[in-house]
Amino acid sequence: MEGVDRRAARVVCLDGQGRVLLMHWHDRVSGKAIWEPPGGGLEPGETPLEAARRELTEETGLPGSVVEDVWVEVQRDFRWLGVRYVTTEPFFLARFDEAGPEVDPGALTPEESEAYLGYAWLESMPDGVEPPELAEVVAKLTGRR
């Protein structure tokens, strides 16, 4: 089965303790719960960096201005709501000085609101993280090995 190539961007957010912000979602079609960095699809005329900044603010209430023009390309092959996506997404970096800034997802779409389970600032990757190689993506973005 051919996959959909949807242009999207994601943001790896690190707090002052080096923890990664992950959003928790429930796919009502598959029944699976996943954890992933904030992000989403590009709007017409938007650059990936603009989309990353907009999506961070919409999904978390955190300031998009903290998203740095530092990114790595990540090959993605995943299913969401019964659709297979095969695409390459830029994952950008954002850093916060404080520990665990409060997240307020005040601008979720109706589909996102239905799927939203919460968020966490995590030291290690949980089961169900997307993409599965997120720890390596964080290492590439931050120069950590």
Rank of each mutant, 00 (worst) to 15 (best):
L49R: 07
Y116R: 04
E36Q: 15
A99T: 10
P105D: 07
G100A: 15
A115V: 08
E98C: 09
E89T: 09
W71C: 04
L81G: 07
R19L: 00
V67P: 03
Y119W: 15
Q17E: 14
V72F: 06
G61V: 03
Y116W: 15
W80L: 02
W71N: 07
A120I: 08
L81W: 12
L22H: 01
R79G: 02
E59P: 10
L108M: 08
E50A: 15
V29Q: 14
D104N: 13
D77A: 06
M125Q: 12
P126D: 09
S113K: 15
M125V: 00
A107Q: 15
V66Y: 06
G39H: 13
P101M: 00
R95Y: 08
P38D: 11
P37V: 14
P48A: 10
E55F: 05
W121N: 02
E73Q: 10
E68T: 01
A107I: 08
T87N: 08
V86Y: 03
W25P: 02
D97K: 09
G64L: 11
H26D: 10
L93N: 00
R19N: 07
T88D: 07
W35P: 06
R28Q: 15
V70L: 13
E59M: 14
E114T: 08
T57F: 13
E98P: 08
P126G: 12
W35A: 08
P126T: 04
R76P: 00
L93P: 01
L62I: 06
E58G: 05
S124F: 13
G16L: 05
P38M: 13
V72M: 05
G61K: 04
Y116I: 06
Y119T: 04
T109E: 13
L49W: 12
Y85A: 04
R28H: 15
E50T: 06
G100Y: 06
P44M: 09
E73I: 05
L22Q: 00
P105L: 06
P126V: 11
R54M: 11
D97W: 11
T88Y: 01
G41H: 12
A120D: 14
S65L: 07
P110H: 02
L62Q: 03
W80P: 01
P37A: 14
F92I: 00
W71I: 04
D27F: 05
P44Q: 12
